[in-house]
Design a protein around this nucleic acid. Structure first.
Length: 474
DNA sequence: ATGTGC
C-alpha cells in the first residue's frame, strides 16, 4: 500500500467516492449508488494513484440510459490515468444493450503492430544514417506515395484489410505497387480479427471516395502524442516455445508501430460525440460526467459500424507504415524477410460475452493471443501472451501510462530538467524538438512494475522483451 | 488522440 493512501482515500471520500483496497485491487464506486457495478483497478503498490482517474472510473460504472441497457462491469489497467474527455485512459467497459462512443473516443483503433526482421543489429546499424534519411522522407516529408483506387478505399472501409487487398491486387497503386501483395494477404491472419470489421464507407468524410483515385495525405503517417515507429532488438525471451511458434528469436532486429486512424477516427468519433448528445432522450438530464451511452438498437448498430469504418482505416495505416519500413530495409540490405508478428487494437469496442467491451487504452488479452505492450521512449517494450483472465475483462495495459502532463514537462523546473537528463542514450528522430521533452522517459510511469503486476495477476505472460534502437516520432 | 485552437 502506498504511504499516502489513507490521505488519498479521505480526499476521494470528500468528493463522494467510496474506495476499497484488498492489497491488490482497488474497488471504487460513487457514494450512495449501491446498484452500480464495481469498478476495479489493479495497481502495484509503488505506482502513483490519481484521484481524477478514480472519479472518472466510478462515473463510467454509474452510467445509465433511460431507454435501457446496462453497465455490467468496469475494470482499469495498472497504467490508467485521467482522460480529458471524461473517460480514463486504461478503462475497460463491459456493457449489455448499450454502447458508449466516449469510452473509445476519437482515437479509434489506436493500436500496435510488431514485425521481426531477418537482419543482424550490427548490419542494420552500419547503415543507420542512410536508413534514417530515407524513413524521414517517407514519414515526415511526404515522399511515401500512398494512393489507392476509390474502389479499394471503399472496400477497405467496408470490409477491412482483406477487402482492400482484393481490390488492390487488381489495381496496385502508389507504394502498394511495390509491395508483395500475396505476403500481405498471408499476413492478414496475424491481424486481430483479420483486420476485417464491418464498416460503412458513408462514414468517411464527405468527398473522400469521390474521385477515381484516393490520395490520402494522412495514410502511412505516425500521428502525434505517444505514437511512434521504433526499431528494436529482441533483448530476451520469456517463453521459448511460444516465441519459436510465433517466429521470434533473441538478438533479432524488430520494428514496432504505435499509431491509429488519424483524421478518420477524429471525424467518426467527433460526429458520434454530437450524435450521442442529440440522441439523448428529451427531458432527461444529462449525466454529470458528460459520458453519453446509446441504447436504441439501430443507433447502437450504426455506431458500431461507424467505429469499425475508422478501425479498418487504422489497420491499413499501420500496415503501410510497416510496408514503407520493410521496403526501405530491402532497398538497403537486399531480400530481407520481415514477417508480421501481430497487429492489435487497444482503442475499440468489440463483442464480448453477450455484450460489448469498450477498451480505451487497453490491449485485448484473450487466451493464447499475442499482446503488445509498448514502452515509453527509451524503455523496453513487451510481447506477451494473453491468459483470457475474465475478472480483468481479458485486457492488459497499453503501455506504462503517463505520469506527468505534457504541460508539466514543457515548462521549466524539475520535470524539464529530469526530462533532459533522461534523454541520454535515446535515439529519437523527430522534427519537433519539444516532442523529446513532452515524451521523455521521465513523463511516464516505470513499465517494469506495470507489466509485473499483470503477470502476477494471471492476465498475461511474457514472451519477449524488446529494447529500442531508434524511435521515429512526428 | 486530432492537417489540434486562442
Amino acid at each position: 500500500m502506498q504511504p499516502n493512501l489513507n490521505r488519498l482515500l479521505r480526499a476521494l471520500a470528500r468528493e463522494g467516492l467510496e474506495v476499497a483496497y484488498d492489497g491488490r485491487l482497488y474497488t471504487v464506486r460513487l457514494q450512495g449508488d449501491a446498484n452500480a457495478p464495481p469498478a476495479e483497478v489493479l495497481l502495484p503498490p509503488d505506482l502513483p494513484v490519481e484521484g481524477k482517474a478514480f472519479r472518472q472510473l466510478a462515473q463510467l460504472a454509474a452510467l445509465k440510459h433511460p431507454g435501457g441497457g446496462a453497465v455490467l462491469r468496469v475494470r482499469a489497467t495498472p497504467d490508467f490515468h485521467p482522460g480529458d474527455s471524461g473517460v480514463a485512459i486504461g478503462s475497460v467497459l463491459h456493457t449489455q444493450g448499450m454502447v458508449v462512443p466516449g469510452a473509445v473516443g476519437t482515437d479509434i483503433n489506436c493500436g500496435m503492430r510488431l514485425h521481426v526482421a531477418d537482419l543482424s543489429v550490427e548490419t542494420f546499424l552500419s547503415r543507420r544514417d542512410d536508413f534514417v534519411e530515407r524513413m524521414k522522407g517517407h514519414y515526415f516529408f511526404g515522399t511515401r506515395d500512398v494512393a489507392m483506387s476509390s474502389r479499394a478505399a471503399e472496400a477497405l472501409l467496408r470490409d477491412g484489410i482483406p477487402g482492400w487487398l482484393l481490390e488492390t491486387m487488381e489495381q496496385p497503386l502508389g507504394c502498394a505497387a511495390r509491395a508483395d501483395l500475396s505476403q500481405l494477404d498471408r499476413e492478414s491472419t496475424r491481424i486481430h480479427l483479420g483486420g476485417a470489421l464491418e464498416g460503412t464507407p458513408a462514414w468517411a468524410p464527405v468527398g473522400y471516395l469521390k474521385s477515381g483515385v484516393v490520395r490520402d495525405a494522412g495514410l502511412a503517417t505516425i500521428g502525434g502524442g505517444n505514437h511512434f515507429v521504433e526499431v528494436q532488438r529482441v533483448e530476451s525471451i520469456g517463453d521459448r516455445t511460444r516465441a519459436w511458434e510465433w517466429g521470434v528469436r533473441e538478438g533479432q532486429l524488430a520494428f514496432m508501430i504505435h499509431s491509429g486512424s488519424r483524421d478518420m477516427g477524429r471525424h467518426v468519433g467527433g460526429a458520434w460525440k454530437d450524435r450521442a448528445r442529440a440522441a439523448w432522450p428529451t427531458g432527461k438530464p444529462f449525466p454529470d460526467s458528460g459520458i453519453l451511452p446509446l441504447s436504441e438498437p439501430t443507433l447502437v448498430a450504426e455506431y458500431l459500424r461507424a467505429e469499425a469504418t475508422a478501425a479498418n482505416y487504422a489497420f491499413l495505416n499501420r500496415l503501410l507504415l510497416a510496408e514503407l519500413l520493410r521496403h526501405t530495409l530491402r532497398e538497403l540490405f537486399g531480400d530481407v524477410e520481415a514477417p508480421l508478428i501481430y497487429d492489435v487494437p487497444h482503442n475499440i469496442t468489440l463483442p464480448w460475452e453477450g455484450g460489448w467491451l469498450a477498451r480505451k487504452g487497453a490491449c485485448p488479452a484473450d487466451a493464447d493471443q499475442p499482446v503488445i505492450i509498448p514502452g515509453s521512449m527509451g524503455a523496453p517494450s513487451y510481447l506477451m501472451v494473453g491468459c483470457g483472465e475474465t475478472r480483468a475483462l481479458a485486457s492488459a495495459s497499453h503501455g506504462a501510462g503517463r505520469a506527468r502532463s505534457r504541460f508539466s514537462m514543457a515548462r521549466g523546473g524539475a520535470d524539464r530538467r529530469d526530462a533532459v537528463l533522461g534523454l541520454t542514450g535515446v535515439d529519437c528522430i523527430t522534427l519537433r524538438e519539444e516532442r523529446r521533452i513532452e515524451e521523455a522517459p521521465a513523463a511516464y510511469k516505470p513499465i517494469g512494475p506495470v507489466v509485473a503486476s499483470q503477470v502476477e495477476a494471471g492476465i498475461v505472460r511474457e514472451v519477449a522483451r524488446l529494447s529500442p534502437l531508434l524511435t521515429f516520432k512526428a
